[in-house]
């Protein structure tokens, strides 16, 4: 695992421009939030949420696109010794996982900082961060792992020129996997472990507390780990 820092640095080199763009989106969101004013149609809070969703959708799409582009470039030629496939995949997984997490956390922090000033009884930063971390673990980490596996998998069909079919299978299989995850996740949810509870009582309404079940999260994380290991094996066999 000595190669990990080097590989992480290579990932950063490959995706520098995207990191800049993401930082730009965050900056624009911050400026936008600071300049929100009341108008006839919407309250500033609603506009803040719209701005936030817009930034999240654009940023999330960009992250996936950047992952696509960066996974196609091979920067490992610069290394003196060739690390194993697992090291490569773990490095990519860690890098893109962290990048997505940093983006989501900063964005959530911006929105929270805005709403905390304007909405009375806004739940504390801890609850918001819990929510963001839960979402990242549930969706983003297995998503990244799936993309990494899909790339190495499609690459292993380059020689037989069946990359298009493999890509199609990987694309369609994704929906099947989501189906299975939802089905299994909803069966095991709340079964064994106490849920993480986020209280909304301070908002002064009749909203129920949000109870996030831990079982689907663990399922997602286990899936992510499994997919990364599998992606490492495919990498090894493709290079060999």
């Amino acid at each position: 695992m000595n190669a990990l820092p080097t590989l992480l640095w290579l990932e950063l080199r490959k995706s520098q421009s995207f990191v800049m763009v993401l930082a730009g989106i965050l900056l624009l969101t911050a400026v936008g939030l600071a300049r929100l004013t009341a108008n006839a149609l919407n309250t500033p809070e609603e506009e803040a949420v719209v701005l936030f969703s817009l930034a999240a959708v654009i940023g999330g799409t960009l992250l996936v696109v950047a992952l696509f582009i960066s996974a196609r470039q091979d920067g490992a030629g610069l290394l003196l010794s060739v690390p194993g496939g697992l090291a490569h995949q773990v490095a990519r997984f860690v890098y893109w996982g962290l990048l997505g997490a940093a983006f989501a956390l900063t964005l959530a922090l911006l929105l929270w900082a805005y709403l905390d000033r304007t909405v009375p009884g806004m739940p504390g930063l801890g609850s918001v961060l819990t929510f963001v971390f839960y979402g990242l673990g549930l969706v983003w980490l297995p998503g990244v792992a799936y993309l990494l596996l899909a790339f190495s998998y499609v690459q292993s069909y380059q020689l037989s020129r069946l990359g298009w079919l493999a890509g199609l299978a990987a694309f369609l299989g994704f929906f099947g996997l989501v189906d299975v995850l939802v089905e299994v996740g909803s069966k095991v949810a709340y079964a064994a472990l106490p849920p993480v509870t986020i209280s909304l009582q301070s908002l002064g309404s009749r909203l129920d507390d949000i109870r996030l079940p831990l079982e689907p999260l663990l399922l997602s994380l286990a899936l992510a780990a499994g997919l990364v290991v599998l992606a490492g094996r495919v990498w090894d066999e493709v290079e060999a």
Binding site: Y157, L159, G176
Partner: peptide, 19 residues
């Protein structure tokens, strides 16, 4: 038939099974 990698073949089976 299209890949020499056993893991990739198994992943194929997995994807098609999911579909």
């Amino acid at each position: 038939r299209g890949s020499t990698s056993l893991s990739a073949r198994l992943v194929s089976v997995g994807f098609l099974g999911l579909i």
